[in-house]
């Protein structure tokens, strides 16, 4: 069980309110990702749930029990930190055993759980090593192992992959998603990387300056961003945002078109420009187009290898059905 509800939660550090009243529900077994630029309060929110920070006002409920005043260890949550926070002078075995030792579990039970966790995380050969002798990915797995053995009602991840290199990050991303599928435990995952959010989440919570901008499944956010911020944040490469006369033609202050929704055509394109940098990835080609008179740079994605070079003229045709329209306040128009 692990249904987490935040009711009018606020947090202030001194005079500054970093989280204005905020409401959020995370259902049992959900994989919720808090995503936003750095300083948006997503880590603070996670720490509030964990109990490492005290709420200034509002209530936090876990499985309908008010835990706002409950100490962190009694909330039944496990947390995985960005820096792993392993105990450096203990072996992997002792690290994983630590929460059980604090809870006073019997030696046999500890050993049993350690072996189960170590087997599922491929750590059996490293149990007697110190964290200093492990690679980044292995340390991350030990931190996860330490979180698993407590059998928590929810896992909290605070940017767990940002200290890993790109290849390992993709691998660990899959492992954590796989772990969630297997265990079906609630997980809350904080990241600034929208790719991680899109690939892992059931529910994405986009935050800006402590305010929830939008909550929804990855594809809801991709298809129908509620405002300009979410539109610019979700999707890679970023959505092209165009204002001025072109937008007014669609009856909006700003329109947005994703790079993958602009086709490169031989002739008869609505927009024309000059190719700036062209990134040939083989499977796709990204063009950074200048001189369209719409925005400084338009990003366009073409499927496959399109042989246009720097300085070539290009004709573009946006798909009319995929144009997002926003009003003067940056809110989505239907």
């Amino acid at each position: 069980m692990g249904r987490i509800v935040l009711e009018n939660v606020t947090k202030s550090f001194g005079e500054t309110q970093v989280i204005p009243p905020l409401n959020l529900e995370i259902d049992d077994g959900e994989f919720a990702v808090f995503v936003g630029p750095s300083g948006c309060g997503k880590s603070t929110l996670l720490r509030l749930i964990a109990g490492l920070e005290d709420t200034t006002s509002g209530r936090i409920l876990i499985d309908d029990a008010d835990v706002t005043e409950v100490s962190p260890s009694k909330r039944g949550l496990s947390m995985v930190f960005q820096t792993y926070a392993l105990y450096p002078h203990m072996t992997v075995r002792k690290n994983i055993a630590f929460p059980m030792r604090m809870a006073g579990l019997s030696e046999e039970e500890q050993e049993k759980r350690i072996m189960t966790a170590a087997e599922s995380l491929n750590l059996v050969d490293y149990l007697d090593r110190k964290p200093g002798q492990l690679s980044g990915g292995q340390r991350q797995r030990v931190a996860i192992g330490r979180a698993i053995v407590r059998d928590p009602s929810a896992f909290l991840f605070d940017e767990p992959l940002s200290n890993l290199d790109a290849a390992l990050r993709v691998g660990m991303r899959l492992e954590i998603t796989e772990m969630h599928e297997r265990m079906q435990t609630t997980m809350i995952y904080v990241t600034h990387d929208q790719v991680e959010a899109m690939t892992m989440a059931n529910k994405i919570v986009v935050l800006r300056a402590g305010v929830i901008e939008q909550v929804g499944s990855p594809l809801e956010l991709y298809r129908a961003p509620q405002n300009l911020f979410v539109a610019g944040f979700i999707g890679s490469p970023k959505m092209n945002l165009i204002d001025g006369p072109q937008a007014q033609k669609h009856g909006a202050t700003t329109i947005g078109v994703r790079p993958e929704h602009i086709d490169v055509v031989e002739s008869g394109g609505a927009w024309t420009g000059t190719v700036g940098v062209a990134e040939h990835l083989g499977s796709d080609t990204f063009f950074y187009v200048h001189g369209t008179g719409l925005a400084e740079t338009l990003t366009v994605r073409a499927i496959g290898d399109v042989s246009l070079k720097h300085g070539d003229p290009i004709q573009l045709a946006p798909r009319a059905t995929e144009i997002h329209r926003f009003d003067a306040d940056g809110l989505r128009l239907p």
């Binding site: 630590f98 929460p99 407590r150």
Partner: peptide
């Protein structure tokens, strides 16, 4: 963070 981890692990 190690301390915080220990707090969550239930260490007095």
């Amino acid at each position: 963070q190690q301390k915080e981890a220990a707090i969550l692990d239930g260490a007095s």
